Amino acid sequence: MNKNAATQLHIYSAFFVLAGFVLNRGVFLLFLAEKGMPVTEIALYQALFNIATVVLELPTGLIGDFFGKKFSIQVGVLLLFFHTAGMLLLSGPFLVVLSLVEALAYSLQSGSEQALLYEIARNAGQGERFLTINARLLAAQSIATGMAIVLGSFIAQVSWSALYVCVSVFYLLQLFLLYPIERTEATRSESSEKGRFDVAKIFRRETWCIGESAFAVLLLLIGTSMLDGFYGSYYNLNQLVFDAFDAPVSIIGIFFGASYAVNATAYIAADFFSLRFGKRNTMLGSMLIEAGLFMILPWFASNPLCLFGLSMVLCFLPEVVYITSENLIQDAIADDLRATILSVASLVRALFSAVFFSIFGHVLGLYPIQIALGIIGAIAIAITAVVSLKMVGIQVSKN
């Protein structure tokens, strides 16, 4: 292994884990209320953030591939620093505008972070172990996020200003860790005489490192991202489901806090099962088990404790699907459009997450909890069937 490349991997791994240590993640909406924003403006903030994230995903992915993935991540972190400072210094309608800055920042990072990790690992001679590396880093990041949420809530009780100053310091630390990272690719302007960016190349066979039709694999990417959007919507829906049983806020908080530990376990489990059964089979098996659990979900609606336990499992398996599908997609794409293609996945995920959550909320409002969960389960089975059939019909990689 190249010593410098190994050092790069270690430094970037530290950045990757630190990126999950966001102290204000669990209380940022409360901070907006503390700043005097009414509920309508807080809702507008979140709505603008979601819309802007969907709109910006593809353009920011192109930026990562055109100017370099490291550059895209650096600009994203810098924007988050300015966003945090703005949250402290500004008030009123200006806070709502900051949602667009936050959306742009996260969009700049979303495709490039995983793409850069893959390329750094490969350059360090660890390409075959990427799933293991990714699983361990995502597990560590999940634990860091859970710890940050708890610590951030305690700091907020003492001082909101202190909390946001601490958040700003951590963003500066992220920039410090990114500085020595070397660019893993030539930018588009350096690698092309005319510096043209050909988006249509996404649909061409040479962009993908496999023998299958590029369009077929792109459909697979969209399908798994849609499924991930569904899973994410159900995860958030648990707040309303538990509330329907008049569960105390503390119990709901325990569920979501524990979910980060569950995520960490899922990433390690995904690596364990992939080594024994292959990534493709692990992903398919997890999808089918998840669909089966959604099928029996309505029968647990009368027992809140059992529903709590089942919902935790329903949060575990999607993370196995996510990391294995993301790894398969990484293996199937070439470097020059890696960030763009991963941004397409994030775009589809965010779009369908918003759509499904709206549908789920409407269903919960119209029907009793047991019928509502039955409808949600039927949707899960239908989506899983479509994606599974596509997965069976395509050989994404030898694993």
Results as ranks from 00 to 15, higher is better:
residue 7 T to K: 07
residue 8 Q to P: 02
residue 11 I to Y: 00
residue 12 Y to A: 01
residue 20 G to A: 11
residue 25 R to T: 01
residue 32 L to A: 10
residue 32 L to T: 12
residue 39 V to Q: 15
residue 41 E to Q: 14
residue 43 A to H: 12
residue 44 L to Q: 11
residue 44 L to Y: 06
residue 50 N to E: 15
residue 51 I to R: 03
residue 55 V to L: 15
residue 57 E to G: 02
residue 60 T to I: 11
residue 66 F to Q: 15
residue 67 F to Y: 15
residue 69 K to M: 13
residue 70 K to G: 00
residue 73 I to F: 04
residue 73 I to Y: 00
residue 76 G to Q: 00
residue 83 H to E: 14
residue 98 L to V: 04
residue 101 V to I: 06
residue 102 E to D: 11
residue 103 A to Q: 04
residue 109 Q to A: 08
residue 113 E to G: 10
residue 114 Q to P: 08
residue 115 A to V: 10
residue 117 L to R: 01
residue 118 Y to H: 07
residue 119 E to D: 13
residue 120 I to W: 02
residue 122 R to E: 14
residue 135 A to V: 09
residue 139 A to V: 01
residue 146 G to W: 00
residue 146 G to S: 02
residue 147 M to I: 14
residue 147 M to H: 03
residue 148 A to E: 00
residue 148 A to G: 03
residue 150 V to H: 02
residue 151 L to R: 09
residue 151 L to A: 15
residue 153 S to L: 06
residue 154 F to A: 11
residue 163 L to G: 05
residue 168 S to V: 05
residue 170 F to M: 11
residue 170 F to C: 09
residue 173 L to C: 12
residue 175 L to A: 08
residue 175 L to R: 02
residue 179 Y to P: 08
residue 180 P to D: 11
residue 181 I to C: 13
residue 182 E to Y: 05
residue 185 E to Y: 06
residue 193 E to I: 09
residue 198 D to Y: 07
residue 198 D to A: 10
residue 201 K to G: 10
residue 210 I to A: 14
residue 211 G to N: 14
residue 213 S to V: 09
residue 218 L to G: 03
residue 222 I to Q: 10
residue 230 F to I: 14
residue 230 F to L: 15
residue 236 N to K: 06
residue 244 A to E: 12
residue 247 A to P: 02
residue 248 P to K: 07
residue 248 P to D: 11
residue 252 I to P: 01
residue 253 G to M: 10
residue 254 I to H: 06
residue 257 G to R: 04
residue 265 T to G: 05
residue 266 A to I: 07
residue 266 A to K: 02
residue 268 I to G: 02
residue 269 A to I: 13
residue 270 A to Q: 02
residue 270 A to V: 05
residue 272 F to Q: 09
residue 278 G to P: 07
residue 280 R to F: 07
residue 284 L to G: 08
residue 295 M to G: 04
residue 297 L to K: 02
residue 299 W to P: 00
residue 302 S to T: 12
residue 302 S to I: 08
residue 307 L to M: 06
residue 313 V to M: 14
residue 314 L to E: 11
residue 318 P to K: 07
residue 318 P to M: 10
residue 320 V to C: 01
residue 321 V to A: 01
residue 322 Y to N: 03
residue 322 Y to G: 01
residue 324 T to L: 03
residue 332 A to N: 09
residue 333 I to S: 07
residue 334 A to W: 07
residue 341 I to P: 01
residue 349 R to E: 11
residue 352 F to Q: 07
residue 354 A to P: 04
residue 355 V to P: 00
residue 357 F to I: 04
residue 358 S to E: 04
residue 363 V to C: 05
residue 369 I to F: 10
residue 370 Q to V: 12
residue 373 L to F: 03
residue 375 I to V: 02
residue 378 A to D: 10
residue 383 I to V: 14
residue 390 K to F: 10
residue 391 M to Y: 02
residue 392 V to E: 03
residue 396 V to Y: 03
residue 397 S to D: 14
residue 399 N to P: 04
